[in-house]
Design a protein around this nucleic acid. Structure first.
Lengths: 231, 231
DNA sequence: GTGGCGGCGTGACTTTGGTCACTGTGCAGG
DNA sequence: CCTGCACAGTGACCAAAGTCACGCCGCCAC
């Protein structure tokens, strides 16, 4: 497991540019744990224990409202670190995290990580870069919530996924959303029903084709042009 | 002006715990500029020039939608630094900034500031702390936008202001919102009319008393109980 | 099989948010 | 003094978001 941890560490942006010996030392101080789908890593408000690193699987970082509505702040895949921030500033976690799929997570305690950072001043700069990326994404979420409709956000999501999947096949791009409508809703900041309805509407308009949890984007250009419509 | 800059620097969280000589050196590398109300410091997307420090006045950090709607991300007063982040990660500004009132702003170029940071490794940790605070506030904004109504956000704002003003006078707390309804709307993520209407409604309910740009909070407890209503 | 369950689709409705258009008011500049 | 202009209040709408209540799969466990 630890040998594998080294492998993983080497592929993580936060630890790029660190010597092999150091990587080994770091790996030795880590523990690994498997989480199954739906399991909580930590809850909003908990005191920060340490840094989490996603080795495999996906982790969802989210806020939950008193009424049970969920808002996803980020989805982190393999190679991402979680909670760098509270590790540094000592505050509590600002949101909750759970495994969106079965996941292997590496963990290093606050103390160990801080000690390591003291020995490697460059780490602090890396942390700033990572946190910076996070901050930019949050600003993006605010922008979307404040300026756009559910429909536009859904379209934006589809367009993003379609573009990640690379160039179109003959009859559009086939994308797979590995999530229930419920989860999509949490990502878009709305409720299940609206996701369902809007998908239906887009299909009726001939822009997409829904097949279970797969979607064929038939008219990417058309979708894009709808993104900004009505502003 | 530079002597004054030293004074100011000493009161800034980011530079706390730095020797006097260093402060002087830093002050020497800065330039100061006055901005009048409404003047832009920079626009979203501009390449990052350097770090801004608010010596006096207030600066509004905001996003603007294509349709002209504005969403305020932060209001920074004296002692706050602006754009620490892009200075470090080299990216462009994620939002725009303008003087919300006449303001004096100190400025240090990216290069100079980075050089200073290299000499003072503790600075990086300070930067992380400041950025961390920012990140937490952004998460708070997302939470509000996603989970609450305009009414609730307005109430939350009033409650916050009332509590900052210290304990109540005999007949409630008198607070001054130094902003037009337009600006309040931008802060709450809505439009002018809704601010106007909701204030009127709260007044009709006897919770507050509106007197121009001052508001008397007559029933703080009542307001607070409305904050979470309907979740 | 069949019972339960999680996820999806939908109709009908309410509430909230947002738009438009217009009015009034107070203040600064000519 | 009048003229503009920025700001505030408001009525009438309209559109989007959210709620409630079902009915309907498809699937797994028993």
């Amino acid at each position: 497991m630890l040998a594998k941890a080294e492998e993983i560490l080497r592929r993580i942006p936060l630890f790029a540019g660190i010597t092999e010996g150091e990587t080994r030392a770091l790996a030795g101080r880590m523990s690994a744990k498997k989480y199954s789908r739906g399991e909580l890593l930590f809850s909003e408000g908990d005191a920060c224990q340490g840094l989490f690193i996603v080795a495999s699987g996906k982790v969802r970082i989210f806020k939950m409202s008193p009424s049970g509505r969920e808002q996803i702040l980020a989805l982190e895949g393999a190679g991402s670190t979680i909670a760098e921030l509270p590790v540094f500033d000592g505050g509590s976690y600002p949101a909750s995290a759970l495994a969106a799929e079965d996941a292997e997570i590496l963990f290093i305690s606050r103390k160990e990580f801080q000690a390591f950072c003291l020995e490697h001043p460059a780490m602090a700069l890396k942390v700033i870069a990572v946190v910076g990326g996070r901050l930019r994404r949050l600003v993006g979420i605010i922008e979307e919530l404040s300026f756009t409709t559910v429909r536009q956000r859904l379209i934006a999501l589809l367009v993003r996924l379609a573009q990640e999947k690379g160039p179109a096949g003959k009859q559009g791009v086939r994308i797979e959303l590995g999530a229930s409508h419920q989860e999509l809703a949490a990502e878009l900041g709305t409720v299940r029903e609206l996701v369902s309805r809007n998908l239906g509407r887009l299909q009726a308009e001939g822009l997409i084709e829904v097949e279970g949890r797969e979607i064929v984007v038939k008219d990417l250009a058309g979708l894009k042009s709808e993104q900004g419509a009505g502003e």
